[in-house]
Amino acid sequence: MNTATQIPLLSHRRRRLLTNLFHVFVLVVLVVFILLPIYWMVTTSLKTTADTFAIPPKLLFRPTLAHYQVLAQEGVVLKSLVNSLVVATATTLLAVLLGTPAAYVFARFDFRGKSDLWFWVISNRFITPIVMALPFFLIARDLKLLDTRLSLILIYLTFNLPLVIWLSIDQFRVIPREIDEAGLVDGATLWQTFYKISLPLALPGVTVAAILSFIFSWNEFLYAFVLTRSEARTAPVEAANFMTAVGTRWGPMMATGTLIVLPVVVFAAIVSRNLIRGLTLGAVK
């Protein structure tokens, strides 16, 4: 009697164990699939050119920093990384500076045309950059802003400002109005309540918006490709440039790729829980 009830129980448990092992196996395969291209890039940047072309591919090799030294000597890639850093930082700061007060107004007040304005802020997420790239090119040419970092800093606001406004509105909304009102009653101006009370409370959300806006600016290619030549060229454009030369220099190219991706990986890890919210404009939390 006892054994009869125990046998199905055991097999049930064993089946659950097998299912779980199968799940784990599939997830491990998934992890390998996600990491392999990135792993391949990093290891290629550390391989000698001979090892890069080896067949079968060398899994164990003696790493070398030679390609990074080449980049340091040539200087163009480093310069482009500095350009990317300056552009992405400046446009992010500007977006936060302009965007957070606007978001505060959106969150706190109703006014005519608000929903139109709102729609327009959102539609920027959907606009194809090539639509903007054509007029931007002519405008920048007329203003003698071609190949300057300033042009990119301003143009990147087209996607950073809506992003910052959007994510900050959510943040300001969850702050109880009473807190603001208490400040206003105490005689603070609206600016002061915003700056001293609401903004510090919204800071975690604003930081997320800033990091996302940095990542998107850092990764941007089309505008930088169309609007810069040599002086203000950003790192992604410089990296793509490796292929126009006769024969591809795989080592330095992968070293450049690694340097570009490094900060992105760090930032993405920090905001991993919020990336989806940023990409879907809050439709998916």
Binding site: L36, T52, G257, I260, V261, V264, L275
Partner: peptide, 30 residues
């Protein structure tokens, strides 16, 4: 895995293109 899933979304598309050139290379690609 959840954290790792964020990686491909965030990685610079230009760099993804370059890595694609490497691993899809006809002669020595992985």
């Amino acid at each position: 895995v959840r954290v790792l899933l964020v990686l491909p979304i965030a990685v610079t598309p230009t760099v993804i293109g370059l890595v694609g050139r490497l691993i899809f290379n006809r002669d020595f690609g992985f």
